[in-house]
Design a protein around this nucleic acid. Structure first.
Lengths: 233, 233
DNA sequence: AAGTGGTCTAGACCACCTT
DNA sequence: AGGTGGTCTAGACCACTTG
């Protein structure tokens, strides 16, 4: 058990959080100035500041320069999702990761891809369809488009041996990305590849990344109805 | 444009990040000690520490007490999801939020609820089924169980006027919660309430919260195939 | 205009982990 | 055992925002 040391910023944070959770301090209530808290709690102001920043990061309090600190009116839930590389995710569960390239072909970006990237006209891209397996069972099917302008090296890659995702993560850092989750009905191809029934629901993870303004890749990854994206809050 | 001030921790962070993203520093590479970086960059060690903590929080570098700082081998994507109260989410889009209570009834927790909470035996609970609307269109259907042992006050609430979620958020803080997203096929009831076709895919958000060890609420919220949970990365 | 949070510095000590 | 990151203190100045 890590007992917080007296005067440590985690101890200060936990004390203040306890007062909020116990409703000793109610939503909207102002908190004392950092300096006063520091004096009362017998620590330096920087330590209070450190504790407060943590609480503010979690959305529990609202801080404004002149307005002071207040308990959030509507504490919104913030969850941090860690999205590991699929291979590592599968291996972490003690299963064997498999990867099967289904298709890789040059093709100009169609309308949905143009829209996802916010492009003005079609660009030459590499379309990669691949299946990830966990212990030989279909796990995630990905339909990916990679810009050949931004990442020409992808064309020379042996995509049977290296997954596009891992190569991109290590070799083409992105400056900005969008991530969206939704549900959909499996298309005929998706159902076939994933060995699902026609019309089964699939979990959709759509991810698009850019290097500055230039498109890198957009991928629609499909997991079956058993898939759960989980986190603690 | 907020130009980082010379010597500020954000400037230090951005410089180091740039070296990582440009692959001047490659995955696995060690970084200089904080003290050396501070001397080189002309700032104090605390400032380097502040920048490094930010990079470590984002998973870009790995820090170990004796082992120093290294660029992450597999920079995993971390996304922060903000899950606001549904009413605020709808209103933020300029739509009118509606709420319709479908059913509220006392009932001992059935097996799936016992499992979700990790209970040993059934507990008396209040089951609440309700529909959220955005501009009169079904938006999210929630099927909620609230523990009457932990939150007896919920029984006296006028659930036609106050949504269970908002009341709980403000009046029953949780100490721990689990959040999971998945896809499923709409049940007959869900399809009926949400005005979906039978067999349509729905986006499932399952959330369970505890106060210390005591169960508060578990809710299965259903959104239609148009719903997208989005975030920037 | 003034008060509050945000940050920086320098020095010190602590805690943890690797060698 | 020793070196690295983690944190604390005190004082100072800055930047934002509200009255």
């Amino acid at each position: 058990m890590n007992r917080p040391v007296r005067g440590s910023w985690t101890e200060i944070r936990d004390r203040i959080r306890a007062r909020i959770l116990s409703r000793d301090l109610k939503p909207g209530d102002p908190l004392p100035r950092d300096q006063d808290l520091a004096t009362d709690l017998g620590c330096s102001r920087v330590t209070v500041q450190r504790a407060m920043r943590d609480l503010a990061d979690r959305g529990l309090v609202l801080r404004k320069r002149r307005g002071g600190t207040r308990v959030s009116e509507f504490p919104e839930t913030r969850a941090t999702l860690s999205i590991p590389i699929l291979r590592l995710e599968v291996e972490a569960r003690g299963q064997r990761h498999g990867y099967r390239l289904i298709e890789a072909a040059r093709q100009d970006s169609p309308a949905p891809v143009i829209a996802a990237f916010g492009l003005e006209r079609p660009e030459p891209m590499l379309r990669i369809q691949a299946l990830h397996l966990a212990d030989r069972v279909p796990y995630v099917f990905e339909d990916r488009w990679v810009s050949l302008r931004t990442v020409p090296e992808i064309a020379d890659l042996d995509l049977e041996r290296v997954t596009a995702n891992e190569w991109l993560v290590l070799n083409q850092p992105y400056s900005r990305g969008e991530l969206a989750f939704s549900a959909a009905t499996a298309t005929a191809q998706e159902a076939g590849v994933m060995r699902l029934g026609a019309g089964d629901a699939v979990f959709v993870m759509q991810r698009t990344t850019w290097a500055q303004r230039r498109p890198i890749t957009t991928v629609r990854a499909i997991a079956g109805p058993d898939y759960r994206l989980q986190t603690e809050i």
